[in-house]
Design a protein around this nucleic acid. Structure first.
Lengths: 344, 344
DNA sequence: ATGAAAGCGCTAACAG
DNA sequence: CTGTTAGCGCTTTCAT
């Protein structure tokens, strides 16, 4: 018997199988679904033929029927940001194991793009969304649309506390506190910090941790030791110069990330200062490269992969079971190397 | 009048609009489609109401009807590989502007995962696929399924020449030749290379360019100056030691990428050798960080973003117009810095 | 210019 | 255990 294919899609459908077997398509559907009651022999014939014809269910039909897509959306600032590149790894792993696809959008740190991405994900009918907000994002009403439509949202890393959603975050306050105390323990007294945009949860708490650590040790919190950065490149050299030219030059700088830290080290050395003797440097993210620059860079390890996989797991939980929002703290870890090593 | 919503999806459908206006859904569909003949007044009423109710067409229904998804699949080795992270940026930009979503899969450099990802993309009914093959991939029959189903495929960077598809690639041979000649011009005579897996197009041609440059200048091609690497971390220190402990120590190393190069520099300096005086180092990818390591790293700029956007553009061309496969060469560029600067 | 009806591929309620 | 029917939301003939 010649294999007759339905015209349009070029793929085998349950209709094809039904006709070839002289049964109804509902029976085929049941036989394929493995849990409905179907005569053993019929089932066998169906499965056999399906296998032979290499039948695969048309996901588009299922999507329409069930109004879901087995796809989760991921909305992040940038894939070139290594933290997020790693987080994607964790997300994909968890999602794929559960049979979900992943649709990634980048806001490029822009609020407008973030909102527009959200609309795209909505249009694509993703079953849930993982979000890390852009550097510009200072409100969260655009996420309300998702919640109104009962689409689960999980924030990770750059989270918001304004919405009642699951969140995966790190102990920004504590780790910034610890990092600052470490600098103090090395004898640093004039500690500067490059702080991210204060609309971001992470940046706020890190700054707070830094300030509280100074206060605890009776060190002054000085305005001109606090630099605002917006993650945009091209400004590191500027603010580094600015800092090292202060009348009271800082003896330590807590950088916003490792790449900025390494660029700062470069500028500092070019200006004839030594690291860590003149200025100690503390980074953020613990990139592999920290071990290979000179001096090796002290940094904070964020478990990006784990944050991604944990966030994905929480999201899938909610998609499936409709559980209540959960919070997950993934602890960061201070990794001490030469760039802050002054004592002991 | 109370807004009545269809029960299931919670969203407004053309049926809702039709009922509220007392017309048929086909008329609504036509009015919305902007090009069919519809009475001006009727159209106006439909558009008005659609706007008021915030109507958006259900993409899942369209997908089923048209058997397409306005989604392109992207199959790459790893997002943590910065080349691909950047390429994704270019891909997304072009795709989003054209109204397409992007579904990303990572092979993690595994052939098996690559093949399995391909099946996922097929199941998701993506309209086309962008591919950069894994380090393990040494055959291409798994891509044939896509071509059989008339799903356009565009290879970029890690391409294959075995299939009749569009390709976006760089001038691996020429740039490796140029890089090697540059090292020779600086007086290097014993040039080692860290070569990638030889099943990869890029690795093969780069090695060839390196060898031909040596031959052109009557320098011997020596087996033990050619290191095989598989992109896996944790081996850089090993092969670097191996190279610098050769009886005839190389006076230059052409590295496989910048991060490997920087790690090599670290190992070399730890062993008391100077760069570039004892050993010159040439990287690949021209990461931002090349400027900030010491000495600043000579590297090869690959225009990752452009390769991504060009590949996406070719793919969309084919999805829409069904044009013939095209080839696009994106030239790489040698960026000379201190790590190879010996003369002039 | 508009409505009725069919169909994309699948599931599920209902009837037998 | 199985067939019939309806329906997910939309487009597109085919009538009128």
């Amino acid at each position: 018997m010649a294999v007759k294919r339905s015209m349009s899609s070029g793929s085998i459908t349950i209709n094809d199988i039904a006709k070839m077997l002289g049964i109804s398509k509902s029976t085929v559907s049941r036989a394929l679904s493995e849990h409905s009651d179907v005569n053993a022999e019929t089932r066998h014939k169906v499965l056999e033929l399906a296998r032979k014809l290499n039948y695969t269910p048309n996901a588009l039909a299922l999507n329409l029927k069930q109004q879901r897509t087995n796809t989760i959306g991921v909305l992040i600032p940038e894939t070139v940001n290594r933290f997020f590149a790693k987080a994607i790894g964790g997300i994909q792993r968890v999602a794929n194991l559960a049979g979900y696809n992943v649709m990634i959008c980048q806001s490029d740190e822009s609020f407008v793009t973030e909102r527009s991405n959200l609309r795209s994900l909505l249009t694509a009918h993703v079953d849930g969304v993982l979000v890390s907000v852009s550097a510009e994002t200072d409100r969260t009403d655009h996420f309300q649309i998702l919640l109104d439509k009962n689409i689960p949202v999980v924030f990770f890393d750059r989270i918001t506390e304004e919405l009642n959603t699951s969140r995966v975050y790190t102990d920004n306050y504590e780790i910034a506190f610890e990092g600052t105390e470490h600098l103090i323990s090395q004898g640093c007294q004039r500690i500067a910090i490059v702080a991210g945009p204060q609309n971001l949860y992470n940046s706020r708490y890190r700054l707070k941790g830094y300030m509280d650590a100074l206060r605890k040790h009776n060190l002054p919190v000085k305005e001109n030791y606090i630099v605002q950065s917006h993650f945009r490149g091209g400004t590191v050299e500027d603010y580094t110069r600015q800092l090292i030219n202060l009348p009271q030059r800082p003896d330590a700088i807590f950088a916003i990330n490792d790449f900025a830290a390494i660029e700062m080290m470069h500028v500092i050395k070019k200006n004839g200062l030594r690291i860590p003797q003149d200025i100690a440097i503390l980074g953020f993210n613990n990139e592999t490269i920290c071990r290979f620059v000179e001096p090796a860079l002290t940094s904070i390890d964020m478990s990006a992969y784990d944050m991604g996989s944990e966030a994905a797991a929480l999201l899938l939980d909610q998609i499936k079971g409709n559980r209540d929002p959960q919070l997950r703290l993934i602890k960061s870890r201070l990794v001490i190397r030469e760039s802050t090593h002054l004592k002991g």
